[in-house]
């Protein structure tokens, strides 16, 4: 009985200390932020309830988008190599093949209407900064026309089967123009010098971000970087919740590839230890019965 009392005292003291230096300290250093918003409800320049017309969308895309953007899936190739594209625009413009799948509809429509507001980069592209985002705002288009484009993009996006390959494709489309993923052999499609000039600093390699930032942080951060890192030049990219989960899943596949092995082996080792502990207890009882 006395030994249990001693154990209780130690567990209490260690518990208080642990609470103070882990959950409590983390709470102080990283206060809770507004929950991720995957409907991007602050963006309301375009009425997304309008039904889009694919045919008209195709005409509009051909007239307005493909001069800069490739849409490989619809047969519109890239106009120039990545290095030249980066030199011309600052960053390689995205291929729009997967845009209809990975970006939220409301975000995409509002992005076309006004990219800087949608990306939440009003702080970077101020009139005083003299910087301009390479893509112009299409706020002169009618909401109907914008929804035609969105509907067209959704119609051409290839179906993907879920799994590691889809996760990788989503990661490359959403993050791969700026970020390296060294442990997966992925290099940003935009050359480093252009990136540094365009972003103000070289965007980090994401190989270990699942470990250094963790799923909880990434969940908020990718949804809207400004919330956790105010003033960052990383844009809000407008991923749907599903696409974001695919990105995070891929980061985990690369950054924490032994997770499944760790969790399975952990249970076996603990079971083994438990058996050892029980045998040790029985042996101790036998031995001490002779001396007590």
């Amino acid at each position: 009985m006395k030994e249990f009392k001693i154990l209780a005292v130690i567990v209490t003291l260690v518990g208080i200390t642990y609470y103070g230096i882990e959950p409590y300290a983390h709470h102080v250093m990283h206060p809770e932020v507004a929950p991720a918003d995957f409907s991007f409800k602050t963006l309301k320049n375009v009425d997304t309830t309008l039904a889009g017309n694919v045919e008209n969308g195709k005409v509009l895309v051909e007239a307005n988008c493909i001069a800069c953007h490739a849409i490989d899936a619809a047969g519109y190739p890239q106009m120039m190599p990545n290095a030249d594209a980066a030199a011309s625009y600052g960053v390689v413009p995205p291929d729009l093949s997967s845009a209809g799948r990975i970006y939220d509809k409301n975000y995409l429509a509002n992005f076309i209407y006004d990219p800087v507001t949608a990306m939440h980069l009003e702080g970077k592209y101020t009139p005083e900064s003299g910087k301009a985002f390479p893509m112009p705002a299409y706020n002169w288009m009618s909401p109907q026309e914008i929804m035609d484009i969105v509907t067209y993009l959704q119609s051409v996006t290839p179906k993907v089967t879920e799994g590691k390959e889809a996760n990788k494709a989503t990661f490359e489309a959403a993050c791969g123009r700026c970020h390296d993923m060294k442990y997966a052999g992925i290099q940003a499609t935009t050359p480093k010098d252009n990136l540094k000039a365009y972003m103000g600093a070289t965007p980090p390699d994401l190989s270990q971000y699942i470990k250094s930032r963790g799923e909880h942080y990434l969940h908020s951060f990718i949804n809207d970087p400004q919330v956790l890192l105010h003033g960052t030049s990383m844009p809000r990219v407008g991923l749907t919740e599903k696409a974001q989960e695919e990105v995070i899943a891929y980061m985990e596949t690369i950054g924490d590839s032994k997770k499944a092995e760790r969790e399975t082996l952990g249970l076996w080792v603990m079971l083994y230890t438990l058996i050892f502990a029980i045998l040790a207890w029985l042996w101790k009882r036998k031995i001490w019965s002779e001396v007590h």
């Binding site: 760790r262 952990g266 603990m270 050892f276 502990a277 040790a280 042996w283 031995i287």
Partner: peptide, 25 residues
């Protein structure tokens, strides 16, 4: 040996259970 260590092994067993929980999870 064996009396003192038998008690230590018993304590060690349950301590290791806690230790491996930390190591893996």
């Amino acid at each position: 040996w064996p009396v003192f260590l038998s008690k230590d092994f018993f304590v060690l067993g349950f301590f290791m259970l806690f230790f491996f929980y930390l190591v893996f999870f």
